[in-house]
Every structure is written in C-alpha cells, then in structure tokens.
Nucleic acid binder design. Structure first.
Lengths: 104, 104
DNA sequence: TTGACATGCAGGCATTTACCTGCATATAAT
DNA sequence: ATTATATGCAGGTAAATGCCTGCATGTCAA
C-alpha cells in the first residue's frame, strides 16, 4: 500500500465526496459524478485520477462510458497500519499527560 | 472532527514518521524529534503544527521544553467515518465489476 | 454517414505547501 | 550576571496542487 497516495487522495473534500457518491451508488459514470460536483468535468477527472492512483477507485469502460467503483481494500490497510496500531494508547494518553504535568 | 485537517496531516511522510516516533516513545521534546529527522528544526515545528491543528498530537510545556503526545482519538474517528462505512462493500466489489463487464 | 455525446489530453494560472534562513524570546546552568 | 539551550516568529522560494479553457478522439444514434 502507498500510504502517501492514499492519504493525499483522502485529503481533499471533493475526492471524499466522490467516494460518498460511489458509496451511495457504485458504478456511476464520469458524467453522473460530475452532476453532483460544481466544477469543470476535467477537474473531476483529475480528482478521480488521484483516487485511481491510490487504488481507492477502479474503473471499467463500457462503450464510451467510464464506470467507477469503490475499492475499499486500501482503506482497510490504512486502518490496520494507522488506526489499530494506535488504539491501545487511547486510554493511556491522559495518564501520560498527567504524569508529565506533575514533573513525572 | 475535521477530516480535511486529519487527512492532510497524515498525507506527508515526515508527519507520519513523527507519529511513529511518538508511538515508539510518547512525550518526546521537539529537539528529540528533530534528531530523527533530516531537516531544519523550524520545518519540524511546522509539521508538528499541522499535527496539532488536526488534534493528532497534544503538547505540554515543561520549562523551556515542549513535550509531544499522540492523540489517537481522531484516528479512531477516521476509522468510524471512512473505513468501517466502506467495509461491507469489500466482498461485493468483484461481483459488481463482473456484472458491469457482462453489460449488467 | 453525419451529428451528438462521453471522455481524454495539453497547457496555463493562482494558491498552497514544504522547505529554508535569520532573528527574538524565555528558561536553565555556570 | 552571563552564557548556553530550547523554542517561537517572520519572511522568502521552489515545487506541488486545484482549478480552468480549448481542442482531440472515440462511440452511439438518426
């Protein structure tokens, strides 16, 4: 997994909205996705390009139409590497802070 | 939670390394963190500023030293909103793709 | 076969980002 | 008191980013 591409792809509201749009209905065409976004088609294409590069979206051509599908695998990998790892610290944080404030 | 700040904060290798450094030993000072990074102190300060803005790192002053602590809460919120939501689609993706390739 | 439709490609511009250097401030140590 | 240490603040630059417009290509439909 390429954490850099994944997080950068997710670090933009338009691209997160694209994921939500595909979550609502998977397999939409570029044009359909554009209908929900207030920007030029080419800008949407660029955003989708980053989502594809991060492997968050896969596409299939059907005639002249390009269909878009969510790929949730990278999200899960992000979870394994960047969320789960840090979860065990959740409860200890306050404790650490207090210790430090008391001069340890 | 501010997804934008969180993902943008995570979308940089230096900042992810900072989180890993703090995971290895929580409560490090700025100087200690700088020792592991090959860039000017001020650059590290800026990176930490973004991590703080995303609430991924909390700091405490002890005299002239600034101590840094991971806050894993935003990561968990990211998981709830951006990973868990999409997990149920994991198995259905291939099915969707095949359906589309067959002309639905 | 001609026109309409869905998309790609190339390039241009303004903003943001990631880095730097130089100087200032506050705390600790001698 | 004076010096050393830890950090902040201000500003400058090059590269990356996000948006656009104009034109090209390939597919469907009349």
């Amino acid at each position: 997994m390429d954490a850099d591409k994944i997080f950068k792809a997710l670090g933009d509201p338009t691209r997160r909205k694209l994921l939500d749009l595909l979550y609502a209905r998977n397999g939409q065409t570029l044009g359909e996705l554009c209908d929900h976004l207030d920007m030029a088609r080419q800008s949407v294409t660029q955003h989708i390009g980053l989502l594809e590069a991060a492997n968050l979206v896969s596409t299939v051509w059907r005639g002249r139409e390009k269909l878009h599908f969510i790929n949730p695998v990278p999200l899960h990998e992000v979870y394994e590497r960047w969320v789960r790892k840090f979860e065990r610290q959740r409860l200890s944080l306050l404790h650490d802070l207090k210790k430090e404030l008391e001069g340890e």
